[in-house]
Design a protein around this nucleic acid. Structure first.
Lengths: 135, 135
DNA sequence: CTTGACTCCGTACTGGAGTACGGATTCTAG
DNA sequence: CTAGAATCCGTACTCCAGTACGGAGTCAAG
């Protein structure tokens, strides 16, 4: 399938990322930067696309680029503990954020609902809540 | 209670924000900047603390500073519709983010659990998921 | 060959909400 | 009065993950 060397634009297209994103990942050390022919253009191995997909799959799990850099350095089979630490840490953060957002959602939902049912007969519940003049 | 004019550090302390935060809100137009005696220091009215509290309460509901700037401009009682729009919009965003994070949480939780129960006998499920070699 | 698309490179910018800094000045407790 | 804390001001920086830009050079289709 992906057996030809690619230039950066083609790699970006195949991996569904931006060219600038690839350059950024190279600067971050997440992706190797092939040598450049003198005054020429770089040629990327087909495997680079798979590496980009790895990065994006990990991001979709909530891992940061720093986490992903660590994961990419693990030797397959020898990094259970580290991978689990990363995942666990990120899981904790996600759960904390979920709790925050859930609380916000609940309050907002209630205030919006009250607003909708008040039809202008009482002071705005949203503003009152923010103004601190409402329980 | 808060009847004395305050200097910025005292205001920050009373409102539980940073001095730099106050300056930032002033630059953003969220808080008025009192006139300054020539070569002297500004004196804030006690009401400034309440305004800062308003801002922070709104932030805790998930509103952005831009949202809050709008809210602060509404005349009490005349801004139902706008306040509700802001709240509704933010509610939608929070709900979308909740959905994302929930999905992430669920996958991560499963992978971490699998990792814990595999005791090194299978390839790392976390790495495999990210590598795309696992359902 | 020509021209337009693409690549390169280094720097700057974006989003949003702060936070820090350096140097000068003011304020106040001791 | 002195010295240290606080204030001022304008600019830069942080967090994180990109994204954009300008100018120069390369590539490839027509």
């Amino acid at each position: 399938m992906e057996s030809q060397p690619l230039r950066i634009g083609a790699l970006a297209k195949v991996a569904k990322v931006g060219v600038e994103t690839i350059r950024y990942y190279q600067r971050r050390g997440l992706l190797a930067e092939p040598g450049k022919p003198l005054g020429g253009q770089r040629s990327y191995p087909p495997e680079a696309a798979e590496r980009l997909r790895f990065i994006k799959r990990a991001q979709r799990l909530g891992l940061t680029l720093e986490d992903i850099a660590v994961l990419l350095k693990l030797n397959d089979g020898t990094g259970h503990v580290k991978a689990r630490q990363l995942a666990t840490h990120r899981l904790e953060e996600i759960e904390a954020k979920l709790a925050d957002l859930t609380a916000m959602r609940d309050v907002l939902k209630k205030l919006v609902s009250q607003c909708e049912h008040s039809a202008g007969r009482v002071p705005c519940p949203i503003i009152q809540a923010v103004a601190g003049t409402k329980a």
